[in-house]
């Protein structure tokens, strides 16, 4: 069981290689309750790899990755985590689901034991929080890029998680949509106080979010301005 007092994210001495190329070596990183941390760096620096290690999608070659004190690979309490991974465009282009169906199904772990009516209320509330009320019956594939990312944020927030992991969530969005998206993240953090791990190569939202910045380069995490984590 996850330790209720453990930090949401703790990486110690983590190394990872992709097809023989070392991406991370001996990386240490911790994220406490309520902290907002942005991982920045060049393409291929390993930012998304860190996010994928955190949610247990990838296993480290060495070192430990703990999610709420539990090995991320064996972590099961997904109600504690909201995750917006990068999404291939073809996943959406012909997917025949309504917005409401997607948010409802995303309560797979967090909505366990709830009645359909209760899940529905939570879905509507989550859509309202991201300004997408009234879009429930719309097909996911009919949304604009900005609207889709707001719906995906609603999917991640609907279970009221204690950790939100966002992997390049504003990729491909115009300036206005990016600002709206990050404002919603900022609001959600202010209201609920969850820890946020943001992977981005876009530096513009960092001030808006008031987050601590960790630059990933050379397989390591380096402190940047305001960073309280990123132990190297």
């Amino acid at each position: 069981m996850p330790d209720g007092t453990a930090k949401p994210v703790s990486l110690r001495g983590v190394s990872f290689s992709y097809r023989g190329t070392e991406v991370l070596r001996g990386l240490d990183l911790e994220l406490s309750e309520g902290q907002v941390c942005a991982l920045v760096g060049d393409n291929g620096a390993g930012k998304s790899t860190i996010a994928r290690l955190v949610v247990g999608e990838l296993a480290p070659a060495s070192g430990s990755v703990l999610l709420f004190g539990q090995n991320a690979q064996r972590f099961r309490n997904w109600a504690l985590v909201g995750y917006v991974p990068q999404l291939p465009p073809e996943a959406v282009s012909r997917f025949p689901a309504s917005v409401f169906e997607l948010v409802d199904a995303s309560q797979y772990a967090s909505g366990r034991g709830l009645r359909a009516r209760q899940r529905r209320e939570r879905s509507l509330e989550a859509l309202g929080r991201v300004g997408m009320d009234g879009y429930g019956r719309r097909l996911v594939r009919e949304l604009s890029g900005g609207q889709l990312q707001r719906v995906r944020l609603a999917c991640a927030l609907v279970g009221d998680p204690r950790l939100l992991v966002l992997d390049e969530p504003a990729n491909g969005l115009d300036k206005e949509s990016r600002e709206v998206f990050y404002r919603l993240v900022s609001q959600a953090h202010a209201e609920r106080g969850m820890a946020v791990l943001l992977v981005t190569h876009d530096l513009a939202p960092l001030e808006q979010l008031g987050c601590q910045v960790v630059e990933v380069a050379g397989g390591l995490a380096h402190k940047s301005h305001g960073a309280a984590l990123g132990v190297v």
């Binding site: 999608e57 995750y83 999404l87 689901a97 169906e101 199904a105």
Partner: peptide
Amino acid sequence: RELFLMSFDERHARAAGV
């Protein structure tokens, strides 16, 4: 629900707890 989420995106499904 598992089939729905996996059809959308396996990473999304896994993160939702499937």
